[in-house]
C-alpha cells in the first residue's frame, strides 16, 4: 500500500552518466528511467511497457544492457551509465547510429534508442555477431513498425565497419 511507503528515504548517489560524474540525493524508490528523464533531462530513453519486456528503455550500466524502467537508481551507485545521448562524440555519430540511418533501422523511432543501446552492448561483447546472434540478443527489443530487417542490416554493417 502506497500510504505506508516512506517516500522520505533518500540515497546519496554518485554515478557517471555519459562520461560526466553526478552526485546527489535520490529517493530510494526512484527508477533509473525517472532519474535520467526527470533529473537529467535525458529524454532519449523511452518509457513503454514499464515491465522489462519491450526494451524501449534500455541503457548500459557498466557496458551491460539493463531495462531502466525496472532498475532502481541507487543500484547504479559507483557505476557508469551510457544512454543514447552519450553515443555520438560531438557531431560524429557512432557507427551504429549512422548505420541505422542508412538502413532505415528506425521508423517511428520510439524503440530506436533502446534498439541502438542493446546493439551497442552486443558489439561491446561480440564485435562480429551473426544475424542469428543479433536476433537472439535483440529478442527483448520490440519494434512494432517492423523495422527488423533494417535494424539487423544496420548492426551487421556497423560491426563490419568497426573491424
Amino acid at each position: 500500500m502506497q500510504d505506508e511507503l516512506d517516500t522520505s528515504q533518500t540515497f546519496a548517489l554518485s554515478v557517471t552518466v555519459n562520461g560526466r560524474p553526478w552526485s546527489g540525493d535520490v529517493p530510494v524508490e526512484e527508477t533509473l528511467i525517472e532519474f535520467l528523464r526527470g533529473r537529467l533531462g535525458l529524454t532519449g530513453t523511452k518509457r513503454s511497457c514499464e515491465a522489462q519486456v519491450c526494451g524501449a528503455c534500455t541503457v548500459l550500466v557498466d557496458r551491460r544492457p539493463i531495462s531502466s524502467c525496472s532498475y532502481l537508481t541507487f543500484e547504479a551507485n559507483g557505476k557508469s551509465v551510457l544512454t543514447i545521448e552519450g553515443l555520438a562524440i560531438g557531431e560524429q555519430l557512432d557507427p551504429l547510429q549512422a548505420a541505422f540511418i542508412r538502413n532505415i533501422g528506425a521508423q517511428c523511432g520510439y524503440c530506436t534508442p533502446g534498439q541502438i543501446m542493446a546493439a551497442k552492448a552486443l558489439l561491446l561483447e561480440n564485435p562480429s555477431p551473426t544475424r542469428e546472434q543479433i536476433a537472439h540478443w535483440l529478442r527483448g527489443n520490440i519494434c512494432r513498425c517492423g523495422a527488423y530487417p533494417g535494424i539487423a542490416a544496420a548492426i551487421l554493417e556497423a560491426s563490419r565497419e568497426k573491424r
Binding site: 529524454t43 555520438a88 541505422f100 528506425a106 523511432g109 530506436t112 534508442p113
Partner: peptide, 19 residues
C-alpha cells in the same frame, strides 16, 4: 538523401509527447 527524421531519432533528440 537520408530520411530527414532519422538523425533526431538515432540520437535521442526526437521529442515525443512524454518528452
Amino acid at each position: 538523401s537520408p530520411r530527414i527524421d532519422l538523425q533526431d531519432k538515432v540520437t535521442g533528440a526526437a521529442k515525443y509527447i512524454d518528452d
